[in-house]
């Protein structure tokens, strides 16, 4: 197993390196980060030249990349166009996004299990058909549209209860009360809407998947035989069917992870979270090479690690993989 993981990890190294160079080159070619400065009346050429020197704009791209990669290996991701060190900046934004995304994945999986298994037990029932249509509509809805809708619902809910329970902007209120309870309530209040948006979209796809997997497992011989042995239905579904039906879901969740991060970009914009999405959009808008590449490096690493984690879960669930 360990060897398998290490091999997977080694496989992903060239992928990350190549993609980081691609992003570096693309952003570097996307334009001059000082262009707006050049256009500002009153800014002297000398000032632009000084800034350009600091940003090494005169060097060829591959040289700049090598220089950056050299220090990146040592954990220094360079500085942004604005002069801020990139590494702490990216980690800060990563924390914000991961909090939202991981919770969304957990909620999404839980929801998918409940809905998927529930509808699989009664295929073609009204509930099943409703679920099928609903998930189809959810999958066809632009994420930002759904986010905007939930935001509106959230505000109306607050106005109904007469105080702000769920928040629509940012990840926490500035300087809330000192008590642990109020801090937790505040954090959760900020998390509800963005997480729900992401989780709903994820759930829509996963629940259909879980439904199909469950139906297949329920028809499998070993489940039939468990039934024949007279095991109670609850135990048949809960232990035998569910466990095996979880295996394909794990794989899907892992492959969808990058897509969820993509969706998070939009959700972050709608809910004004300063996460990875905002960081990337700003970096691209400013042609900020170091930030964009740092973003990619960290995001790709996270995706790789999470995929590995999924492999581990997969192995734990499926005894066939443990001893290849």
């Amino acid at each position: 197993m360990a060897r398998f993981l290490i091999r997977r990890l080694l496989h992903s190294v060239p992928v990350v390196v190549v993609s980081s160079f691609l992003v570096f080159a693309m952003v570097a070619a996307s334009g001059d980060p000082l262009a707006e400065l050049r256009g500002r009346p009153g800014v002297s050429d000398a000032t632009v030249a000084l800034r350009s020197e600091q940003l090494e704009l005169h060097k060829p791209v591959h040289e700049r990349y090598l220089g950056w990669a050299g220090s990146a290996v040592r954990g220094d991701l360079g500085t942004s166009v604005g002069g801020e060190p990139v590494a702490p900046m990216v980690l800060r934004h990563l924390g914000v996004t991961l909090r939202m995304v991981l919770l969304a994945v957990v909620v999404g999986i839980a929801g998918a299990l409940v809905v998927g298994v529930g509808t699989a037990l009664r295929p073609r029932s009204v509930l099943d058909r409703a679920g099928s249509v609903l998930s189809m509509v959810l999958l066809a809805t632009p994420v930002f549209w759904l986010a905007g809708l939930l935001k509106d619902v959230g505000i109306r809910f607050n106005e109904l209860v007469g105080r702000t329970v769920v928040f629509t902007a940012g990840e926490r209120s500035p300087a809330t009360g000192a008590s642990v309870a109020s801090v937790v309530a505040d954090r959760l209040g900020h998390l509800v809407l963005p997480t729900l948006t992401l989780a709903l979209v994820a759930m829509a796809g996963w629940s259909r998947f879980q439904r199909a997997a469950t139906i297949e497992v329920l028809n499998a011989p070993y489940v039939q035989s468990a039934r024949a042995r007279g095991l109670p239905e609850r135990r048949v579904v809960g232990v035998h069917a569910l466990r095996n039906a979880l295996i394909p879901l794990t794989a899907v969740v892992a492959t969808d992870f990058a897509a969820i991060l993509g969706g998070a970009v939009l959700v972050e914009v709608v809910f004004a979270w300063q996460g990875m999405g905002r960081l990337l959009l700003d970096a691209v808008a400013r042609s900020d090479v170091h930030v964009a590449t740092g973003w990619l490096l960290v995001t790709a690493s996270v995706v790789v690690v999470l995929n590995l984690l999924a492999d581990l879960v997969y192995a734990a669930l499926d005894p066939r993989i443990r001893n290849p």
Binding site: S19, M26, A258, V265, A285, L296, V303
Partner: peptide
């Protein structure tokens, strides 16, 4: 392509 969130490629390239 699957490791990199799709949107980044699009955002970077589309901007240009």
């Amino acid at each position: 392509v699957l490791t990199v969130p799709v949107i980044v490629v699009l955002v970077v390239a589309a901007a240009r």
